[in-house]
């Protein structure tokens, strides 16, 4: 009987596991193998041991990319979660209570939909759109206004000190809507009586947010942090569309590992590109594991 049950379960698992193994696991394993070879894609790969990884250690573009990931890793979650929490609070709780039920600010239903718009757009569409937003001359959305006001145009993507932050801003813009929805769902599950009790004790909106909402949302925020961290390891599409040279310019000031991988593949250096891919794999995994470990904290029982 027991045997039969397992067989039944396994038979259901077989198809997805086979698909997963074929299309996810196997390519990963092959990428590991290719990273140990010199391969141009026309003839058989040649095994060269760890040469690609040694080369990686001295590749200044790669290290620039890593540094950019670190910047994104810190800034993207902080800014996105900060803004999303603020918005979610306003949309759900910030309007004060009415008949014992906490309400969002006026028009919150409308805002909720609007905030979600960027999430619906494909990332490449967003990138192309922001080309126009950031365009350095009078036909750019921002600079058009600035120049009308008689100000100097801002070179969002070609100023080396500004370019990465301009791209970060797009990532934040795109991500916020999703996390507003995520946090809203979290807040909805906070029992109204907790707020009521706090309010009776004379808590201001500020106190409500920091002493009630934030602790009760901790799990959700943790998840958001991991998601955003992983997004910070990507950024390929935005950088390759928006950056000067489409390769992480100006002067590699916005490059990310994805872009470096793509550049090397363009030159048929598949082995080296795979080595970068493997490095990226470990960076991402390490980050996810670390975050989950570090941010582990007692959940507040409700």
């Amino acid at each position: 009987m027991r045997q039969g049950k397992y067989l039944f379960v396994y038979s259901f698992l077989l198809a997805p596991v086979a698909l997963y193994a074929t299309f996810v696991i196997a390519p990963y394993v092959q990428a590991f193998y290719i990273s140990l070879t010199s391969w141009r894609g026309f003839t058989a790969p040649k095994y060269i041991g760890f040469e690609n990884y040694q080369r990686l250690l001295h590749d200044e573009h790669f290290w620039k990319a890593v540094r950019h990931h670190i910047v994104l890793l810190i800034a993207l979650p902080i800014v996105t979660i900060g803004i999303a929490l603020f918005f979610a609070f306003l949309l759900n709780v910030g309007g004060g209570s009415q008949g014992g039920v906490r309400k969002g600010v006026w028009g919150s239903k409308f805002y909720r939909v609007v905030f979600f718009f960027p999430q619906v757009l494909a990332v490449s569409v967003i990138a192309v759109m922001f080309q126009v937003v950031y365009r350095p001359n009078s036909s750019g959305l921002i600079n058009g206004v600035l120049m009308k006001l008689g100000l100097d145009p801002v070179y969002f993507l070609s100023n080396p000190d500004l370019a990465l932050w301009s791209i970060l801003a797009v990532m934040v813009w795109q991500a916020v809507g999703f996390y507003v929805v995520l946090f809203s769902a979290g807040m909805a599950s906070v029992p109204a009586d907790i707020y009521e009790a706090a309010e009776l004790d004379g808590a201001t909106r500020m106190t409500l947010f920091f002493k009630v909402t934030l602790p009760l949302l901790w799990d959700t925020i943790q998840v958001a942090w991991v998601y955003l961290g992983i997004a910070a390891f990507d950024a390929f599409a935005l950088v390759s569309v928006l950056s000067v040279g489409n390769n992480g310019g100006p002067d590699w000031n916005t490059t990310v590992i994805g872009v470096e991988i793509y550049q090397n593949m363009q030159q048929n250096k598949y082995g080296y590109a795979s080595a970068m891919g493997v490095a990226l794999f470990f960076l991402t995994i390490t980050f996810a594991a670390l975050t989950l470990r570090v941010s582990k904290r007692e959940t507040i029982e409700m």
Partner: peptide
């Protein structure tokens, strides 16, 4: 492109 191309190349 960036993420899938690597496994694609391995095929």
């Amino acid at each position: 492109v960036g993420l899938l191309a690597t496994p694609a190349a391995s095929f």
